[in-house]
């Protein structure tokens, strides 16, 4: 049975789209193989608690 030329071209088109999609996904995955979710952490060099004169005064006021 002879297949109409229009059906053949549609099949080829769909095959081409599918193959193209797979190739694009492979390229994207290959470019970023170490993709990891961002981890929460403090910025380096951040100042934390310091026993300043202000803090010492606060501790004194709590002893009243």
């Amino acid at each position: 049975m002879k297949v109409p030329a229009s059906k053949l071209s549609r099949r080829k088109f769909l095959l081409a789209v599918g193959a193209g999609g797979v190739a694009t996904a492979a390229v994207v995955a290959g470019k970023n193989p170490q993709a990891q979710p961002k981890k929460a952490e403090a910025v380096a060099g951040s100042k934390g608690y310091q026993l300043t004169e202000h803090v010492r005064k606060y501790y004194e006021t709590t002893k009243v």
């Binding site: 951040s46 100042k47 934390g48 608690y49 310091q50 300043t52 202000h54 803090v55 606060y58």
Partner: peptide, 10 residues
Amino acid sequence: LAEGKLPACA
């Protein structure tokens, strides 16, 4: 804390 203080509430 970075300013050398403690929480405002306390």
